[in-house]
Structures are given as structure tokens and as C-alpha cells.
């Protein structure tokens, strides 16, 4: 027999009637995804847990004003992404400036113009196995992205959201999402090149 799975909107309707167990069900549905998003943006379990709690507390406080113009998941991602961005901004560690970042992004373009033959590591065996060393390298490279590039990249390429959902979550236009995604990808490609070429 097919099990009935209520939609997010049906759960919200129940919560508004005061059903607290349904609230727990809604939280359970999204807690792993919110935690993963926060962890990928912050690379810290403690900070990711803080963002997770802040996100759901803000959801509870704002649920009465949620009118359903966008999907619940989009609204939730927006709250979570903003909480993670706030956390990044509060950190004292110096983030890479946008101009330093863009210099790195287009270094490969200049190398091509200068006639340098680029090495191809796309078939390197180390890229086939996602061992802990490779995972650490991937995480370290994400941490170097300026915050808004990191948010776009994590939402689009790690969480797998469509570009128009990312635009809605981050309050950007779709072309802005695409151009930031492209730059973030080029930057990460360059960072991984140095690593895989040595393998």
C-alpha cells in the first residue's frame, strides 16, 4: 500500500493549528540538508550547528508570515544561506578579496594567451577516488571562495539547486548566478589543477 506523505504546505497548515509534532516532522525533513549546506559554506561542525539552530528558530518565528509565494524549501534555504553568510562575515579571518580572487580565476586564460600548454588531469586516477585527502583539498578550495561565490557554488553544484532557485534564495538575477557560478568553478578548477598535476 502506498504510504501517504504530506507536502510541506500540508505540514505547515497543521503546525499553524498548533500541532507541535508536525513541526518536528518538518524539521526532521530538512535538518540534514540545512546542516550540510551550512557545513559546506563554513567548514566547521560547531558553526554549522549554530546555523542549523538559528535557521529553524527563524523558521518557527516567521512561519505565520510565510505566505507561500515561493516554495517552503526555497524560503528555508534563503534563511539558512543568510544565517551562514552572517556567520562568515562575523569571522575575523581575512577572506580573499574579490580582485585577488578574479586574478586567480583568469590566470588560466592568460596562460593560454601566453601559449602555455595546459596539462590535462581530467583522467587522473586520483580524481576517480574520493579519498579523504581529495575531500580535504576540495573543502579547502571552497573555503577560499569569496562568500557570495561560495554560496552560489554550494547551492548550485553541491546541493544541486536549479539556477533560478539559487537566484531566488540569494536575491540575485539568474545571469548573476550563472556568472558567479562560472567564476567559482574556474577558480576551483585552477586550485585543483595544482594538486592533481602533482599526483
Amino acid at each position: 500500500m502506498k504510504q501517504f506523505v504530506p507536502t510541506d504546505e500540508e505540514l505547515i497548515e497543521q503546525i499553524r493549528k498548533g500541532d507541535n509534532r508536525t513541526l518536528e516532522e518538518l524539521v526532521s525533513r530538512y535538518e540534514d540538508r540545512v546542516y550540510n549546506l551550512a557545513y559546506r559554506m563554513l567548514s566547521s561542525r560547531q558553526d554549522a550547528e549554530d546555523v542549523l539552530q538559528d535557521t529553524f528558530l527563524n523558521v518557527i518565528r516567521g512561519l505565520d508570515s510565510f505566505r507561500g509565494q515561493s516554495r517552503f524549501s526555497t524560503w528555508l534555504y534563503r534563511i539558512a544561506a543568510n544565517a551562514a553568510l552572517t556567520k562568515i562575515r562575523k569571522r575575523s579571518r581575512r577572506e580573499k578579496s574579490e580582485s585577488e580572487f578574479l586574478d586567480d580565476v583568469y590566470a588560466v586564460k592568460e596562460a593560454t594567451h601566453a601559449g602555455v600548454v595546459l596539462p590535462d588531469w581530467s583522467s587522473n586516477p586520483a580524481t576517480r577516488l574520493l579519498g579523504s585527502e581529495v575531500r580535504q583539498k576540495l573543502g579547502a578550495a571552497i573555503r577560499e571562495l569569496p562568500e557570495v561565490y561560495r554560496a552560489v557554488f554550494v547551492l548550485r553544484d553541491v546541493e544541486g539547486l536549479p539556477a533560478d532557485d539559487v537566484a531566488e534564495v540569494l536575491d540575485l538575477s539568474v545571469p548573476a548566478v550563472k556568472s558567479r557560478l562560472h567564476r567559482a568553478r574556474l577558480y576551483l578548477r585552477n586550485r585543483l589543477s595544482g594538486y592533481f598535476e602533482e599526483k
Binding site: 546542516y35 559546506r40 593560454t112 602555455v116 595546459l118 596539462p119 581530467s122 576540495l138 585543483l192 589543477s193
Partner: peptide, 27 residues
Amino acid sequence: CHNCRVVIDTLRRTVALYHSIPCERLP
């Protein structure tokens, strides 16, 4: 163009690598 092929193949690989990172499970 060898270089453009390399950039496309390695960029595609970069995206695939990030996509294959396992989800960080909530403790």
C-alpha cells in the same frame, strides 16, 4: 584547440568531484 579542450574537461571533472562529495550527516 588543445587548451580549451583541457579547460572544459578539467572543469567538468571539477564539477563532478564536488557533486560526488557525500552529504555531511548531522551528528
